[in-house]
Simulated assay, not measured.
Amino acid sequence: MRTPAEIFAERLATQTDVADVRSAPPGGFVLVDSRSREAWDQGHLPGAVHLPTADIAGRAAELIDPATPVVTYCWGPGCNGATRAALAFALLGYEVREMLGGVEYWIREGFPLATAAGEVVRDPDPLVAPTGVACGC
């Protein structure tokens, strides 16, 4: 039986959140949007690669160096698409993490969304991104 410490360490090794992705130094990982083309076209995280989950097994190696860590995302906490995408990458041997919160929390924290018209930014939602104070977590 795993201890609580082992369980939490495993979660931190396989998950990340939108604030950590946003503040990470460039080049440390490839950000992968696993949603449909239509969802991607509505808006996606700047710098992300579009690779729907169903295409990962057949196309990952041509798009992403297997030695490069990957972070997957999908719609939001009510969707397990990022989990399925992370599993597909893990089965191919990639180091991978799932970004908790997905596009929904990226937008709610006031981070930019890339669209055909340019980047779009909404005001942060004070319920998830308090203004004027640091989270401290």
Rank of each mutant, 00 (worst) to 15 (best):
P4N: 09
P4Y: 10
E6V: 13
F8L: 11
E10F: 14
R11V: 15
L12H: 03
T14I: 10
D17C: 10
A19Y: 02
D20N: 14
V21P: 06
R22Q: 11
P25S: 14
P26W: 06
G28T: 11
G28I: 11
V30G: 06
V32D: 03
D33S: 06
E38A: 13
A39Y: 02
W40S: 01
G43C: 04
G43N: 00
P46D: 08
A48W: 06
T53E: 11
A57D: 11
R59M: 08
A60L: 07
A61D: 15
L63M: 15
A67T: 10
T68Y: 07
G76S: 07
G78M: 12
N80V: 01
N80I: 06
G81M: 05
R84E: 06
R84T: 06
R84L: 13
A85W: 01
F89N: 05
A90V: 01
L92H: 05
G93K: 12
G93A: 12
G93Y: 10
R97K: 15
E98Y: 05
L100T: 09
W106Q: 06
I107S: 00
G110N: 05
A114G: 08
T115F: 01
A116Y: 01
G118C: 04
E119W: 00
V121D: 07
R122A: 13
P124D: 10
P124K: 06
T131K: 14
A134C: 07
